[in-house]
C-alpha cells in the first residue's frame, strides 16, 4: 500500500496579496509503505512546507493528499487521527518540551490519543528505550537534560504515538557529532524494527546516503526527482546546479578522476571508495 501519496499538491502563501508566493508547486509523488526516504533541497525549496501537508497542519491551496489511502481532507476523516498516523517531528524539536518529567512529556501524545493508562505506560517505556533513554531519566525534568537527550525525548514523544509514518525535519541539526550519530542510529534501528515509513529531511548528504533508500529532491517548490540513492547521486552536476552538495567522498572521486585515477562515477560511500581503490592498487601490483 502507498503510505503517502500527493496529487498535484500546491500551496500558496498570502493568496490575493502582492506577497503571494508558491511554496509548493504541483507535487505528485507516491511513497510506499516501509520506505526510508531522504528529503533534500536548498533552503527555501519547500521541504518544510511540503511535510507539514502530510499531517494536515497546512491545508493545500489545490491538489490532494492521501495518507495510507485516505484523503486527509475528506469530510469523514478526523484530522487528529491523521496526525497520530503520520507523526511529525519539527526542527529543534526540544523546544516543544513542557512537562515536569520526561515520562509525562513522552506521554502527552499517547494521552491525546485517549489510550488506557497501562497502554500509555507501555508505550512511553518502549519509546524511551528505542530512543536510548535510560529508565532513570524518565523521572527527571526535561529541562535538566543535555541538548542531545532533550532531542531524543522529543523524538520519543512522537514515536510513542506509534505512527505508521514518521516525518523528521532535520532531527540532527545543531547537535555535536556524537549526538548526531546517536539520534540517527536510533531512528534507523527504529525503522528496521517497526517497518515504519520514514521521511528524513536533512542537509547532510552523508546522512542521506547512509540511512535513506530513496531520495526526494525539491527545487524551488517543485519536485526535482524522486529516485533511489544511486540514481540521485550519480546526477552530481544537476544537483550542483540546483544548489545542492554531493557527499565529500564523491567530490574526492571526481578529483581523482581528473588526476587520471578513475574509480567510477557511483562513489558516495567511503566503503565503496575503499573497495575500488584497493582493487586498482592491487591491479597495479599484480601487473
Amino acid at each position: 500500500m502507498n503510505a503517502v501519496e500527493t496529487k498535484n499538491l500546491t500551496y500558496k502563501y498570502s493568496v490575493g496579496t502582492p506577497f503571494e508566493t508558491t511554496a509548493v508547486d504541483d507535487i505528485s509523488v507516491t511513497i510506499e509503505q516501509g520506505e526510508f526516504v531522504g528529503v533534500i533541497g536548498h533552503t527555501g525549496s519547500g521541504k518544510s512546507t511540503l511535510i507539514q501537508h502530510l499531517n494536515g497542519l497546512l491545508k493545500q491551496t489545490s491538489g490532494e493528499v492521501f495518507i495510507n489511502g485516505r484523503n486527509i481532507w475528506d469530510k469523514d476523516v478526523n484530522i487528529r487521527d491523521i496526525r497520530f498516523e503520520a507523526g511529525l517531528v519539527f526542527q529543534y524539536s526540544e523546544y516543544q518540551l513542557f512537562e515536569e518529567t520526561v515520562y509525562k512529556d513522552i506521554a502527552f501524545g499517547p494521552k491525546n490519543m485517549g489510550l488506557s493508562d497501562e497502554e500509555i505506560d507501555k508505550r512511553v517505556k518502549k519509546a524511551a528505550e528505542q530512543m536510548g533513554l535510560n529508565e532513570e531519566l524518565l523521572e527527571r525534568s526535561p529541562f535538566d537534560l543535555s541538548g542531545g537527550q532533550k532531542r531524543r525525548v522529543a523524538l520519543a514523544g512522537v514515536i510513542a504515538m506509534e505512527p505508521k509514518i514518521l516525518i523528521l525535519d532535520e532531527p540532527a541539526a545543531g547537535l555535536d557529532p556524537a549526538g548526531r550519530d546517536k539520534v540517527l542510529e536510533e531512528i534507523s534501528s527504529y525503522h528496521k524494527n517497526s517497518e515504519t515509513t520514514i521521511l528524513l529531511v536533512s542537509h547532510s548528504m552523508e546522512d542521506i546516503v547512509k540511512y535513506a533508500k530513496k531520495v526526494l529532491v525539491m527545487n524551488k517548490g517543485k519536485l526535482f526527482c524522486y529516485e533511489d540513492v544511486d540514481t540521485v547521486f550519480s546526477m552530481s552536476e544537476e544537483l550542483k546546479n540546483i544548489g545542492l552538495d554531493i557527499p565529500q567522498i564523491s567530490k574526492l572521486a571526481h578529483l581523482l578522476k581528473q588526476k587520471g585515477i578513475d574509480i567510477g562515477n557511483d562513489i558516495y560511500t567511503v566503503e565503496r571508495a575503499k573497495e575500488r581503490l584497493l582493487k586498482i592498487i592491487k591491479g597495479n601490483t599484480d601487473a
Binding site: 499531517n55 487528529r80 519539527f90 523546544y95 512522537v158
Partner: peptide, 16 residues
C-alpha cells in the same frame, strides 16, 4: 513566529 511553531508541534502530537 515562535508561538506558531510551538503550536504546530503540539498539534502534531494531537493537542486540541
Amino acid at each position: 513566529e515562535e508561538t506558531d511553531k510551538i503550536m504546530s508541534a503540539q498539534k502534531a502530537r494531537g493537542a486540541e
